[in-house]
């Protein structure tokens, strides 16, 4: 008699669990559908399309092209711009990533100080991060204007410098765009660093102080290793973002003066009425993806090595 009840109880429980499981699948169904249609399927399609020949404007006509697209994007006459664009974003990443990492950490350390008004500064420093990339590009295009009323020229004039054609000079233009994006990228990364800094165990810092370590030593040997995870995250996300630079380039320089980026190329390839070579555009996207993977794995490798040194 007692056994029977127990058995029934168990069956009831599993039935309830099974019911819960069914509902769980139902609850994640919308997420799964969107994920499959707009993330998983496109990955496979990108690989397939990169081996085909078709036009984005007339997607019904798809022909197999083999590896022709991959060869063409590097060798076709008049297409050295894709190779160039890869160098451009690499140049950009080399400037942007270190700057944004150092500045975000500096800002996080500043607002982490126990002084009055630190919260107000946190708000002010975050504001650039919430604004539209298009609007920000307008404002900085004006600030970097080559004319006499361009404010950057006014500023270098104070120090006796000659006016520069900021956005019209090869090399300099990309530097300006990097500055703009550092300005806009500090906020989010600063918050990540702030969270990491607040997670550093105070007793470790205290112990080091008692042992006679100075502030610089504490920062280098205690704080930095403790926030290595945050640094890894910030560096990786900044790298991924760097290689996909588009909005600011489109608005501020239109891809001129050595600011042509791969995404700019991909967009033109697929959507420019004159071109519409979508197979090649997809091949470019796959190559760009491979480059990003290589660079982020390299970062991963280096960070692991650095971490191992501290452990």
């Amino acid at each position: 008699m007692f056994e029977k009840i127990k058995n029934r109880e168990r069956r009831k429980l599993t039935k309830m669990q099974r019911n819960q499981e069914r509902l769980a699948y139902l609850f994640i169904l919308p997420a799964l559908v969107f994920f499959s249609v707009f993330v998983l399927a496109p990955i496979v399609m990108a690989l397939y399309f990169s081996l085909c020949s078709f036009s984005q404007r007339n997607i019904t006509l798809i022909e197999w092209a083999g590896f022709k697209n991959y060869v063409d994007i590097f060798t076709a006459p008049g297409l050295k711009s894709f190779r160039e664009s890869l160098w451009h974003v690499l140049y950009y990443a080399v400037m942007y990533v270190p700057m944004v990492v150092v500045m975000s950490l500096l800002f996080a350390v500043l607002i982490n100080q126990k002084i009055r008004g630190a919260k107000a500064f946190r708000i002010m420093y975050y504001i650039p991060s919430i604004t539209s990339g298009v609007a920000v590009s307008f404002i900085f295009q004006f600030l970097f204007s080559a004319a006499d009323y361009g404010l950057m020229n006014v500023v270098i004039g104070w120090f006796g410098g000659k006016p520069l054609n900021w956005l019209g000079t090869e090399g300099l233009a990309m530097f300006c765009i990097a500055l703009v994006n550092v300005w806009g990228g500090i906020g989010g990364n600063m918050i990540i660093y702030l969270a990491a800094l607040q997670g550093v165990p105070p007793d470790q810092v205290e112990a080091a102080r008692v042992d006679g370590a100075n502030k610089r030593q504490i920062f280098v040997h205690i704080t930095l290793p403790q926030i290595a995870q945050a640094t890894f995250f910030v560096v990786m996300m900044s790298l991924i973002g760097s290689f996909q630079l588009y909005d600011q380039v489109k608005i501020m320089t239109g891809g001129g003066s050595g600011t042509n980026t791969p995404v700019f190329q991909i967009y033109m390839m697929a959507f420019d009425p004159g071109s519409s070579k979508s197979g090649m555009a997809n091949a470019m996207a796959v190559v760009l993806f491979a480059v990003i993977m290589i660079v982020t794995s390299l970062n991963n490798f280096l960070q692991n090595k650095i971490n191992a040194k501290y452990e």
Partner: peptide
């Protein structure tokens, strides 16, 4: 989340 959006954007357009 680590996937660069540029890889999926053209097929998304296709879909």
């Amino acid at each position: 989340l680590m996937l660069p959006t540029i890889v999926t954007i053209l097929p998304q357009y296709y879909i």
